[in-house]
Amino acid sequence: MPEPALFECLPQLKGRVAFTLLGQWPTPLEPMRIKGFEGRDLFVKREDMSSPIYGGNKIRTLETLLALALQRGARTVWSTGAYGSNHALAAALHAPRLGLAPAALLFPQPPTLTAADNLARLISLGVRLSALRTIALFPLRLAALYVSRGQFVMLPGGAVAVGALGHVGAALELARQVRAANAPWPRHLIVPAGSICTVAGLLAGIAAARAMNLWAGPTPRMHAIRVTPWPVTAKARITRLARRTASLLARLGAPGGNLAETCSLLEVHGRYLGPGYGKPLERGQAVINEFGSTLPFPLESTYSAKAAAGLMDLLPQLDGAVVFWSTKSSAPLPPLDPSRLELAPAHVQRWLARAGLRTK
């Protein structure tokens, strides 16, 4: 398997950044055909195929964060986020590969079947689970974890500079793929914005790629499709994480490039959040109904359908090549364990039932 682009393009990072290989890189960059947009230069970056165990964009973040947990001597690694967290499920399936015990501190979200599938898998895997009744308890419980010995705590989505380095690698990987295929340089990237780690890392990565003359085209416009509310996905918060990531690269001796220019081309599209995080968007459901059977990547109501709705609506306004970032794992989910689901706390079972998933 080839070396990840992060280290092949930035060899000065080797041995200085905690890293463990979990994914299969590079993820494919595929042409995409959409009815009504024939003849357009449309591509999809198949992050959903990053691992046959559990893929998606979270794997790039876990490669640095789980390695850092090992480096610090942790025995248990905690994911944090909403009940249906993709990051928590990804960590639950990949952390044991490294001898780490997975755990999750989760707060409620609107009940949907997609979210319930993730939570039910966490329970079925026997993950140590703290499922809060209300988000109001989250800050106190999070603070308590930080002072516990042997515990490594990841913020929702792993949204810290070290976690974003994986997505710097994704930008470098994309540049190499475009060059190798002699494809048109993307003028627009369309990416779902939830925990913001992916968008911030891509911004820093494109700036670095341009500084190294690896990205030969013009700086692309980044369209972040908001799937979590402001201020989580505020433009200022995304660019702040991008700056922290670029600063980390600079401290490690890597080029940072013109991050100001890259960030100036960031657009956050808020209308696709719809009624709120985890709540289906009518336009997203329409995209699932019309295109779900023909698109090569999975669509679900929380992230990918909202991002795909943004793609369909924005395409008539965009010039040049467009790359859609497919972030939801396409790997089969592990089986459910009814015996463990029956032992879940009563409030969790009620939430699963409201989402349409029965535990008995």
Rank of each mutant, 00 (worst) to 15 (best):
L311I: 08
L299E: 10
G274K: 09
L333M: 11
A115P: 12
P316D: 11
A181C: 08
A171H: 01
L241T: 04
Q24G: 12
S79C: 13
L13K: 00
A355P: 07
A307Y: 05
E173Y: 00
E282A: 15
R237G: 05
T262M: 05
G84Q: 09
A120K: 13
A103V: 06
L357H: 13
L318V: 11
E342S: 15
Y272A: 08
F291W: 14
G194V: 06
L6G: 03
P192Q: 07
P184R: 03
R237A: 12
L165E: 01
H269T: 01
Y303W: 05
G36W: 09
P231M: 13
I206Q: 06
K58E: 02
P102T: 00
L155P: 14
P229E: 12
Y303L: 10
L241D: 05
H188W: 02
L22S: 09
F324R: 01
R176H: 11
V322M: 12
F152E: 04
L174P: 04
P218C: 13
L89G: 07
V17Y: 00
H347V: 11
L98H: 01
L311Y: 01
L105E: 10
L172E: 00
L13G: 04
A353K: 15
L142D: 07
P52K: 13
A74P: 08
R121K: 14
